[in-house]
Computed example of a mutant assay.
Amino acid sequence: MNSSQIKHFDYIFTGSGLASLMIVYKMILSGKFTDKSILLLDQDAKQKNDRTWCFWEKEDSVWNSVIAKKWDLALFANEKIKLDLELKPYTYNKINGLYFYKFVFEEFSKHTNVTFLNEKVTDINELETHVFVGTEENRYTCNYLFNSIYTKAFAERQTKYPVLQQHFLGWFVKTEKEIFNSEEVTFMDFSVEQKGNTRFMYVLPISGNEALVEYTLFSEKLLPKEEYESEIKSYLQKFGVNQFEIIEKEQGSIPMTCFPFWEKNTKRVLNIGTAGGWTKASTGYTFKNSDKKSTQLVEFLQNENLNLKNFHKKSRFWFYDLLLLDILYRHNELGSTIFSSLFKKGNLILIFKFLDEQTNLIEDFKVILKCPKLPFITALFRVFFYRQK
């Protein structure tokens, strides 16, 4: 194929995951990119309900119309305590992947400058004046490229930064008896056997007899599928449920690491989403962070003399996340103790504010001091000493 047949775009997004879709949607909303051509490339056609996103929010956002369910109450539990937590002024919100895809693609279809192609990316090559992108079917060029295709090897083939996985398997079940409180989400139920890890149940109830029940771990290694499923069955049996219908299933693994993916950003190529370190390392939450980062990026793209390498700004919250991950990587069994101390002694509104990275230093210390002291002090010295070497 000669150069005259290679189509050029102002912006290309390789991978159309959550971050890419948020960015393009907000570019449209801004009205500042109507003269710019935008291409999204993904081997997945985005026509399945393949995931669930949840986030807490004080006020309505641009995503309000696709929120499937909101909760004002949350349950936190371990083998000794059960805490019913009032979330106000926050709500905990659930978005189904398929509805989100339909929502953004319907908007994209109204704009002739936005193109989505169901093609697998095979090659990215940055040149001085543009970026070259190859797929199995075609070749393209662009001025700037945003990559959300995650490369596991970048994080997992190094030893400087710990890498855990938030891995889970969930069943959306329908039971004969009404056993769920549809007004209360279960954030973390650590009453399940820990087996030397950080393991908990996560429950999103839709009605008295319908809920998404997920067995979740923050640990290094994944489990056989049968073990997740066995734990979900055992958990339902605790409520006296032996007969139930599985409506849908979902399974995933989200990397939890402070590896500096942004160091691979260049003048014309920006890594975004999980591939850019946008996932909140200490919790695995993706939606809220991507929402914030995508807003910042759309504003950043309006600068003259654009250099994508300048977009990322590291904050002290990255260091806090690194401390927690260092502890959980070395002592994975401490997860229940750490999270229990936060929720048992802490102010939930302050915890949410801290996880949203909106606290000041005094508020930071109020949260951190609720955690077990010795593991964090040890991690502080270990991380500081190691990073000075």
Rank of each mutant, 00 (worst) to 15 (best):
F168A: 04
Y161A: 06
E183S: 14
T151D: 11
Y144T: 07
Q158M: 14
F180H: 05
Q166R: 00
V173I: 09
Y150K: 07
F168T: 00
Y150F: 13
S182W: 01
E178M: 05
V163M: 06
G170E: 03
Y144M: 11
T175M: 05
A155H: 02
V185K: 03
F180K: 04
W171Y: 11
F180R: 03
E183R: 15
E176F: 14
N143E: 15
K152V: 13
Y144S: 04
S182L: 08
W171G: 00
E178C: 12
E156T: 10
R157L: 09
N147Q: 07
Q166G: 11
L145V: 05
V173G: 07
L169E: 02
F187T: 03
F172V: 12
F146D: 02
N147E: 13
Q158F: 07
F180L: 02
M188Q: 06
K177E: 04
L164I: 04
A153Y: 10
E156L: 12
E176I: 09
H167W: 00
T175P: 00
G170L: 04
S148A: 08
V185I: 15
K160C: 11
E178K: 14
F168V: 11
S148P: 03
S148G: 08
T175Q: 13
L164G: 13
P162V: 06
Y161I: 04
N181W: 02
F172E: 12
T151C: 06
M188E: 05
I179C: 08
T151F: 08
T151A: 13
F180V: 06
A153V: 11
T186I: 11
G170F: 03
N181E: 03
N143I: 10
A153M: 07
N181F: 04
E176G: 14
N181Q: 10
N143L: 13
T159C: 07
K174V: 13
R157M: 12
V163E: 00
Q166K: 01
F172I: 06
T159K: 14
P162G: 13
L169A: 12
F172S: 02
K160E: 11
F172Q: 12
V185C: 07
L164N: 03
K160Q: 13
I149W: 04
F172D: 03
W171A: 04
T159N: 14
Q166F: 01
N181S: 11
F172M: 10
R157P: 11
E184N: 10
L169G: 08
I179W: 03
F168M: 01
A153C: 12
L164W: 02
Y150R: 05
G170K: 04
M188T: 01
